[in-house]
């Protein structure tokens, strides 16, 4: 498209240069502002450490051998909580999407419960399961279940009825129909739901690690707040971003792998 909102196409190299310049510019601006704050004594410089101080804090934590334990703790909670949520959501979502009678009962109930922000239920989880791993993992499962369940139901419900007809007239029996047509046809949307769930896991793990945890990146942030260790707070936040980014990349790779048929080379 030469003519339109996007304007004339920007050459790849120029686009790349602009993007790199933007990142460098962002880091430079950050450094300059934090340097200026320190030099001009605008406010206490511990509030805004430069990027290198943040990186330094992470390196120091890693050198002391503490960082790894926190990362693993967070990852473990996300992995267990999210995969439990995914298994439950898909396990319930497929039949609920397929059988209308089931859907008519389950859907309105879910629709009524869904507007309650998951975070509002976190204290209840702590009251029920205690402050340990159980409440954190259980909370991620709870928070990720709804969106993944709803996308699964939607996927099964809105698949092309002609696909089902085509398979039936080729002799597909109900079980074959389910595994060979409904599941693969719903897969793209289910995988989108899974990617959403991964993002949501990292979204909510932080706050449950703020509240009574002894390990984990969220703990590191909250601990930093109590002792004004701003570099540690920012470092842990960036690390969480990196983990979330990686999680998203893995989910996308899975989509590309399983959905190669959507845009084969």
């Amino acid at each position: 498209m030469e003519w339109g909102l996007r304007g004339p196409a920007v050459a790849r190299r120029r686009a790349l240069r602009l993007k790199l310049a933007a990142i460098v510019g962002f880091l430079a601006l950050w450094s300059i502002v934090s340097g200026a704050v320190a030099a001009l004594k605008l406010f206490n410089p511990i509030f805004l450490p430069g990027p290198w101080v943040v990186l330094g804090a992470l390196v120091t934590l890693a050198a002391k051998g503490q960082l790894w334990g926190h990362v693993v703790a967070t990852l473990e909670r996300v992995a267990v909580g999210f995969s439990t949520g995914a298994v439950l959501a898909i396990g319930f979502g497929l039949p609920v999407g397929y059988f209308r009678a089931l859907r008519n009962v389950v859907e309105p109930v879910v629709e009524l419960l869904r507007p309650i922000p998951p975070l509002a239920m976190l204290p209840l989880f702590i009251v029920w399961v205690g402050i340990g791993e159980g409440s954190k993992v259980g909370f991620i499962t709870y928070a990720t279940f709804f969106p993944m369940f709803l996308t699964t139901v939607h996927a099964v419900r809105h698949l092309d009825p002609l696909l089902v007809r085509a398979a039936q007239s080729l002799g597909a029996r109900p079980a074959q129909l389910f595994f060979r047509v409904i599941l693969p046809a719903a897969l793209p949307e289910i995988l989108t739901g899974i990617r959403l769930g991964v993002a949501l896991s990292f979204f909510v793990i932080v706050i449950s690690e703020f509240i009574g945890a002894e390990r984990g990146l969220g703990y590191l942030i909250n601990d930093g707040r109590n002792f004004f260790l701003v570099p540690q707070m920012l470092g842990a936040a960036v690390l969480l971003g990196l983990l979330g980014y990686t999680g998203n990349a893995i989910a996308r790779a899975a989509e590309r792998r399983f959905l190669r048929w959507q845009s084969p080379s």
Binding site: R165, A166, S169, L170, V181, A185, L187
Partner: peptide, 15 residues
């Protein structure tokens, strides 16, 4: 399976 069907919209299994 005794009655094969060919649809106007092709309806191939895209996967």
């Amino acid at each position: 399976a005794d009655r094969g069907v060919v649809f106007q919209e092709y309806v191939l299994f895209p996967w």
